[in-house]
Simulated scan of single mutants.
Amino acid sequence: MLTIGDYLKHKRKDMHLSRKAFAQGIVDSSYLARVEKNKNEIRAITFIELLNKNGISLGDFLDNIDMLHFQNYLYQIKVREAYIAGDLDTLIKLSKNPVTSNIMRIVVNWLIAILTDQIDTFPEKNKVIIKNFLLEVEYWDDDVLWIIANCLGMYDLDQVNGIINRILGSYTDFAEYNDYKIKLLAEIAVNYLELSIKEDSYSIKQAKVANYIDHLPACSSIFYEKLKAKYIMQTHQLPKINGSISFILESI
Rank of each mutant, 00 (worst) to 15 (best):
L2Y: 06
T3P: 01
Y7V: 11
L8D: 00
K9T: 13
K13S: 14
M15D: 14
H16W: 09
L17P: 02
S18Y: 10
R19C: 11
F22Q: 01
A23R: 02
A23F: 04
V27L: 12
V27G: 05
D28E: 12
S30K: 14
S30P: 04
A33G: 10
A33V: 06
K37L: 15
K39N: 12
E41I: 09
R43K: 15
A44Q: 13
L50I: 08
L50W: 03
N54I: 03
F61Q: 04
F61G: 03
H69Q: 13
Q71G: 02
Y73F: 14
L74P: 00
I77K: 15
K78R: 14
K78N: 15
V79N: 02
A82H: 00
A82P: 00
Y83F: 15
G86Q: 09
G86C: 08
G86V: 07
T90W: 04
L91N: 00
K96H: 15
S101H: 07
N102F: 12
N102I: 13
M104G: 03
I106T: 03
N109P: 06
N109W: 04
W110L: 07
I112C: 08
A113W: 03
T116Y: 11
T116R: 12
I119V: 15
I119K: 13
F122L: 12
P123A: 11
V128D: 13
V128I: 15
I130Y: 06
N132H: 15
F133N: 02
L134M: 09
L135V: 11
E136A: 15
Y139G: 07
Y139K: 15
W140H: 04
D141S: 13
D141R: 08
D143A: 09
L145K: 03
L152Y: 05
L157G: 04
N161L: 11
I164Q: 02
R166E: 13
G169K: 11
G169I: 07
D179S: 12
D179A: 11
Y180G: 00
K181N: 08
K181A: 07
I182H: 03
L185T: 00
A189I: 03
A189P: 02
A189T: 06
Y192C: 00
E194L: 12
L195H: 00
S203P: 03
V209C: 07
A210K: 02
N211I: 05
Y212I: 07
I213L: 10
E225Y: 08
E225V: 04
K226M: 07
L227E: 03
A229L: 04
I232C: 07
H236Q: 13
I241M: 12
S246A: 14
